[in-house]
Simulated scan of single mutants.
Amino acid sequence: MRLVFAGTPEVALPSLRALIGSGRHEVAAVVTRPDGPAGRGRHLVRSPVGALADEHGIEVLTPRKASDPEFLDRLRAIAPDCCPVVAYGALLPQVALDVPAHGWVNLHFSVLPGWRGAAPVQAAVRAGDQITGATTFRIVKELDAGPVFGVLTETVRSGDTAGALLDRLAEAGAGLLLSTVDGIADGTLRAEEQPADGITYAPKVTTEDAKVDFTAPAVAVDRLVRAVTPDPGAWAEFRGERIKLGPVVRVGADSLAPGELLVERKRVLAGTATAPVALGEVQAPGKKRMAATDWARGARVEPGERLT
């Protein structure tokens, strides 16, 4: 089957590699977000998906909008049978959806209809879900509401960050996407409508969403920090400056006010609404990430000082 793959970040690479390496389908082109500035020099850099396509000699399309006439003309000229999608990062208008005979098939990192939207993995970790997964479905105009081809499930481990969980789902999801494309190609797979109940939404997580509220219970603090690791990254304020926080560990001793710091020889505790948490890595402005104990010694944390 002739394919045009749409994706942008590293999480899409396992799926693109699986499709290229299958030997059963032709990846005629990829669609990815335009090159963006990166590094100190702010030079324009190809997206991870675009860079992988370049390595394989695959045509790369970088429309600013998927409704651009030039892009649509080129897409029609390529005449894909199907367009697999993994984290492309832009809306697809109906005029683009109508081009491939078998539609655009998205790999979404949740078990739909749960956690529709831009940040399903972060939402699953923050909600304390024990099971999540990935779903392949045909894209329709309504957000993540199209009929489903296939589903896989994955256990959410107690210490999972969103990044670690997403890495596992990206690898497992690549196999699901490939089997979905195989099934569409040989006519053995039909999509089924999503259930009408159980719909939840996972909007994009902003930097403000990643601020740690130490007046919340320890379990909520733990989940939030893991949910926003590595992106956009948890943070709090200390002495009026923003510091970044890595995953914490819930502990069952000591009684501290919310955000109050207690520096011990081998750990730094911060109070919550319930039990304290032990801080992991801390990054102060202009500094590298370091163990919380090293940060506390360098900052000379005084008794009673707090994170807010």
Rank of each mutant, 00 (worst) to 15 (best):
M1I: 09
F5W: 03
A6R: 07
P14C: 07
L16W: 03
R17N: 11
G23L: 13
H25F: 14
E26W: 06
P34S: 12
G36H: 14
A38T: 15
G39E: 09
R40N: 10
G41M: 11
V49S: 04
D54T: 13
H56F: 15
T62I: 05
K65F: 11
A66L: 15
L75Q: 00
R76M: 01
P80W: 03
C83H: 06
P84Y: 09
V86T: 10
V86R: 06
A90G: 12
L91Q: 07
L92T: 00
G103W: 06
N106W: 12
L107N: 02
F109G: 02
G117Q: 03
A118D: 11
A118F: 07
A118E: 13
V121D: 01
R126K: 14
A127Y: 13
T136E: 07
E142P: 01
A145Q: 10
P147E: 15
G150R: 15
V156R: 08
G159N: 14
G159L: 13
A162L: 06
L165H: 03
L166Y: 01
L166A: 12
E171K: 13
S179N: 14
V181C: 09
D182N: 14
D182M: 13
G183L: 05
A185E: 13
E193L: 08
E193Y: 04
E193A: 15
T200A: 10
K204C: 04
T206V: 08
D209G: 02
D209T: 02
V212D: 04
V212G: 03
T215W: 06
A216K: 08
A218G: 10
V221D: 02
D222A: 05
V225L: 05
A236N: 03
E241N: 12
I243D: 04
I243K: 00
R250H: 07
V251H: 01
D254G: 04
S255K: 14
L256I: 06
L261T: 07
R267S: 10
A273I: 00
G280H: 02
E281K: 09
R289S: 06
A291I: 04
D294I: 12
A296D: 07
P303A: 09
